[in-house]
Design a protein around this nucleic acid. Structure first.
Lengths: 203, 203
DNA sequence: CTGATTACTGTACCCCGGGTCAAGTTTTTG
DNA sequence: CAAAAACTTGACCCGGGGTACAGTAATCAG
């Protein structure tokens, strides 16, 4: 018999894929347990209800993504100590990472939750909000440093510029999915990169 | 008794609001008919099933949004015949329009459908795709004209620049919702405007 | 090796929501 | 005024979320 943590992880993995494809409500517990190879009772041994599954899934997702961004922009900073160049390299790395996904980006759980917050209690909504805020803060710090070294050519709100990264990624995923053209997302990230370049880079 | 078309419209109105708030699957037929003031059988007189509701809803939504964009950018063009200035005015008008929404943007059905395409047959998926393509085409035509008059300062893909408008709007809605800060969407549109200005406007 | 704990299975059951069906009733309209 | 349109009533089936509880197989601590 598999260890509890393995089963739990498998449930989360299966559920995440299904939910990103079809939505939360459309994903039945029965299909999840069938895919994992356990019974319905087995599911309820791990999660008291479907909501908790959503919550845990979202939490895990946010942690993974945050770590990914951390690694990516830390690496960019190591490659170039200049804040602007580090940002531009970071976005390039992000674009490459997205381009390497074989079937396109599987979707963003945070965005998914935004359009399906029925059962999602304040707990889940807050989780989502905190994640967005942490990403805003991360990029805002970077942009403040950039703006100090390179005065922006147009007056811009650096907070909303920070939000733009989340906006472009989440929006890009949607447009890419609607069109069934995975590379739309990559190109959107590169457009954002061009914007930042134009905004800060001296002639 | 209300006319058939009135009832149908009411069903669509109620359903749209509910679906944008909670998601498609989470919105029950029973709550819709309760809000409209008819019975379950009354609903099935108008729609053979819930899928058809989704389809008709999406179709209506796309038509409304397309007309809105038409009016908005036509008006912008009337105000200024220069293609670049017309685009910048159009985006300004869009930002103002979004800013005037009392409770923030209610959400985009196209985006919503992207994360919930279980029952959504090819019919619905295609509807979505065609809508995105029509918006891409509309803006691409405009950017081609702009690029001819104002050579862009950086080499950019004008198709993906066109997609960027949909990206920013859909992404902006998500970030605004997650943060519960409606003005995030407005600010994102204005960031896009700044990008376009920087990209094309001569010094 | 044993006994307790963990990680389940199996079965039976309740409720809700999508959806069907048939028959009747009220409005609207030509 | 009659036919067609727009419903209502009520009965029913099915699948899925969720509960309850008894039984069982693996794991692990002593």
């Amino acid at each position: 018999m598999a260890r509890a943590q393995d089963t739990r992880k498998e449930i989360l993995d299966v559920a995440e894929r299904a939910i990103l494809q079809k939505g939360f409500e459309a994903t039945s517990i029965e299909e999840i347990v069938a895919a994992v190879g356990i019974t319905k009772s087995g599911f309820f041994y791990h999660f008291p209800d479907k909501n908790t599954l959503a919550h845990d899934l979202l939490k895990r997702y946010i942690e993974t993504e945050t770590k990914l961004f951390d690694d990516l922009f830390d690496r960019a900073r190591e490659l170039n100590d200049d804040p602007l160049h580090a940002m531009l390299i970071g976005l390039k790395l992000l674009a490459e990472l997205l381009d390497d996904l074989p079937n396109g980006h599987p979707g963003c759980l945070v965005a998914s939750a935004c359009y399906q917050d029925r059962l999602f209690d304040d707990n889940v909504r807050n989780l989502n909000k905190q994640a967005m805020l942490s990403w805003r803060k991360r990029f805002h710090t970077m942009f403040l440093e950039i703006a100090e070294a390179y005065p922006p050519k147009e007056k811009v709100d650096l907070v909303s510029l920070s939000d733009m990264i989340s906006t472009i990624v989440d929006g890009g995923i949607i447009v890419a999915r609607a069109l069934n053209e995975p590379d739309v997302l990559v190109k959107q990230v590169l457009q954002l990169r061009t914007y930042i370049k134009l905004l800060f880079k001296p002639d």
